Simulated assay, not measured.
Amino acid sequence: MRLFFLSLFILFLASCEKESQNENSFGTCEADGTVTDVQRTAAKLIGTWRWTKSDCGFCANPGIREADKNIMVSFASDGTFSVREDLETIEEGTWEFLESYGGFFVSVEPKNTAYLNGSIRVCDTELISDARPWDGAGFLFIKVNP
């Protein structure tokens, strides 16, 4: 039984290694900021973001896909967010920063929203919502008003 789990773990690590070497992958964004840089990271997050791509390694059709809907996510300075499809709001909630691994990740409430699921990282003009640790998809957003 241990051998089975060890083999499964090695297979998982090999697939992660392969993905990180894929030039089309957007999963290489590092968490921005340090313990004293919450304000700078918040300034990068606040604004509107447009969904451009998704990546799912464990889906029925794995790989990187272009966005097939007009999804916009807005983060406000008062700690609220909204997700819109075209002009219709489909999700709303609150956000805050959590420190992890020497950087900051965005935590949203309610959890498990359709496009903001898993770890959310801010990198310059890119935002990545990555549920892959839970076998879900990763979503790449580009800032609309940098």
Results as ranks from 00 to 15, higher is better:
residue 69 K to V: 11
residue 115 Y to Q: 09
residue 100 S to M: 13
residue 64 I to T: 13
residue 99 E to L: 10
residue 92 E to I: 04
residue 73 V to H: 03
residue 28 T to L: 09
residue 19 E to M: 15
residue 95 W to L: 02
residue 24 N to H: 08
residue 41 T to G: 04
residue 34 T to F: 12
residue 6 L to V: 13
residue 135 D to A: 14
residue 75 F to G: 06
residue 60 A to V: 15
residue 14 A to E: 10
residue 7 S to T: 10
residue 83 V to C: 02
residue 18 K to F: 09
residue 34 T to G: 15
residue 24 N to W: 04
residue 24 N to T: 04
residue 76 A to W: 00
residue 48 T to M: 14
residue 21 Q to C: 06
residue 131 A to W: 13
residue 12 F to S: 14
residue 68 D to T: 13
residue 72 M to Y: 02
residue 89 T to K: 15
residue 81 F to D: 00
residue 77 S to Y: 01
residue 84 R to C: 10
residue 118 G to Y: 05
residue 106 V to H: 02
residue 140 L to N: 00
residue 39 Q to K: 13
residue 119 S to H: 12
residue 60 A to C: 05
residue 92 E to F: 05
residue 130 D to N: 15
residue 96 E to F: 04
residue 73 V to T: 11
residue 29 C to T: 07
residue 25 S to I: 08
residue 57 G to H: 07
residue 116 L to R: 02
residue 18 K to H: 14
residue 40 R to T: 15
residue 22 N to P: 04
residue 51 W to T: 01
residue 146 P to T: 11
residue 144 V to W: 09
residue 113 T to H: 06
residue 50 R to V: 10
residue 81 F to T: 04
residue 24 N to R: 07
residue 43 A to S: 13
residue 50 R to S: 12
residue 99 E to V: 08
residue 101 Y to I: 08
residue 20 S to P: 01
residue 53 K to R: 15
residue 77 S to V: 03
residue 99 E to W: 08
residue 135 D to F: 15
residue 68 D to E: 15
residue 129 S to Y: 04
residue 74 S to D: 01
residue 55 D to N: 14
residue 133 P to V: 08
residue 88 E to L: 08
residue 3 L to T: 09
residue 109 E to I: 12
residue 59 C to L: 02
residue 40 R to A: 07
residue 139 F to Y: 10
residue 98 L to Q: 14
residue 14 A to N: 10
residue 76 A to E: 09
residue 36 T to H: 05
residue 126 E to R: 09
residue 133 P to Y: 07
residue 29 C to P: 01
residue 16 C to M: 07
residue 67 A to G: 13
residue 128 I to D: 03
residue 99 E to F: 06
residue 118 G to T: 13
residue 114 A to L: 13
residue 60 A to P: 00
residue 35 V to C: 01
residue 93 G to N: 05
residue 106 V to P: 02
residue 48 T to I: 07
residue 135 D to H: 10
residue 33 G to S: 14
residue 3 L to Q: 12
residue 123 C to R: 07
residue 124 D to H: 11
residue 35 V to D: 06
residue 90 I to G: 00
residue 66 E to H: 08
residue 129 S to A: 14
residue 81 F to S: 00
residue 132 R to A: 12
residue 39 Q to H: 11
residue 37 D to S: 15
residue 26 F to C: 12
residue 145 N to I: 09
residue 61 N to A: 06
residue 31 A to L: 15
residue 8 L to A: 11
residue 108 V to D: 02
residue 27 G to A: 14
residue 125 T to V: 12
residue 146 P to F: 03
residue 97 F to Q: 00
residue 97 F to S: 03
residue 102 G to P: 05
residue 7 S to H: 07
residue 127 L to H: 00
residue 105 F to M: 08
residue 21 Q to G: 08
residue 140 L to E: 10
residue 99 E to C: 03
residue 76 A to K: 10
residue 100 S to L: 11
residue 142 I to P: 01
residue 26 F to Q: 07
residue 47 G to Q: 08
residue 142 I to W: 00
residue 78 D to W: 04
residue 53 K to V: 06
residue 13 L to M: 08
residue 130 D to M: 09
residue 118 G to W: 11
residue 135 D to M: 15
residue 47 G to W: 04
residue 136 G to P: 04
residue 137 A to T: 05
residue 111 K to A: 14
residue 113 T to L: 14
residue 57 G to P: 00
residue 122 V to M: 10
residue 102 G to V: 09
residue 91 E to S: 10
residue 6 L to R: 03
